[in-house]
Write a protein that binds this DNA or RNA. Structure first.
Lengths: 176, 176
DNA sequence: ATTACATTTCTCAGTAGTGAGATAAGCGAG
DNA sequence: CTCGCTTATCTCACTACTGAGAAATGTAAT
């Protein structure tokens, strides 16, 4: 089964074990919080559900989602600085080193020095890496598409647009 | 920084390293796939961005998101069979045992036998666990609410409704 | 009752990462 | 030039899980 972690905050009407409100606050805030918490649960579930399909698909080739994401971004955008890849696929700094190491060990990716900046290094697909992505990508795109069929394509665009705002705002906001 | 794993599939116009299309397919499918892949990226990013705020908030009390999710669901719904908690917070079967063990070690949760089914066990908050959730929840709800401010509350409801369809469909679909 | 199967939790070896700090290089002001 | 700050990658000890399978119990059909 698919698996991700998220809170459950659906207080369905009065069946909650703790209905008493200790601090009465503004009704607007209450409504806003309810919407936000509900969306958080649903967002987590939707992400988990889709991710499990994506994961199951890439796992067939012995890759993790993070590995596949790297291969894919290098395939579609060409060689890229490690830091750039890191920001794109959202792993930690240690993570990108680790993942590129592993992909290098598999012969799918290689590091290249950067002439302009001797601290920096490029990640680039090797020919076998390129061949692998070319082979895997169509089926993967199809798996994602199938998994997304719960929503019509035009609704998908609406959701995407809204989630983009949401994500940008949250990413921009400094962590507490 | 926040961190999650997801593919990057944004082929912005023609700067892609691989623009040649090998197999010409139906334009509808092409459009559908583009929408689906784009949504997958954006969904992943939005989830990661919000999750990092949620994570930073609960981490202040030395809890993981999964632990907090368990405490919260037990707080709001009362004692619950382990399997039920597992399905709600979406962890593996091993995960729920492990997490409840850890919360038990922290004195926040206890197991109770089930009279009707001797295989099954309840998870329930201890008084300290209940007190902790009562103390943490308001600030946590606030953190989530703040993180979600990229979208107006009514838009949040629209997105939530759509994501619910998406998630239910994907969760129902058997994995390949 | 017996057999076969399903469900619930637990076990545990394994893994995919994280994150804090180290190292090295570039960058700008004085 | 050189001091202080920033940026890019790497190191490594650590962790929060996963997932496959075991054990125990329930359930149903013959």
């Amino acid at each position: 089964m698919s698996n991700t972690t998220h809170p459950d905050t659906s207080r369905s009407s009065d069946e909650s074990a703790h209905a008493e409100v200790t601090v009465p606050r503004s009704p607007e805030l209450e409504v806003e919080q309810e919407a936000a918490l509900r969306l958080w649960v649903i967002l987590s579930r939707a992400h988990a559900a889709i991710a499990s399909h994506a994961h199951a698909d890439v796992a067939r080739s012995g890759l993790t989602l993070a590995e596949f994401a790297i291969l894919e971004v290098l395939y579609h955008r060409g060689p890229m600085l490690l830091g750039e890849v890191q920001r794109r696929i959202l792993v930690s700094s240690g993570g990108i080193t680790f993942l590129v190491d592993r992909l290098t060990a598999k012969g799918l990716v290689e590091r290249r020095n950067c002439d302009k900046d001797r601290r920096a290094r490029y990640a680039a697909l090797t020919p076998p890496g390129e061949a692998l992505v070319a082979e895997l990508f169509p089926a993967h795109a199809d798996a994602i598409t199938q998994a997304m069929r719960g929503l019509a394509a035009d609704d998908q665009q609406v959701v995407a647009e809204m989630l983009r705002s949401l994500g940008l705002h949250a990413a921009a906001k400094p962590l507490p």
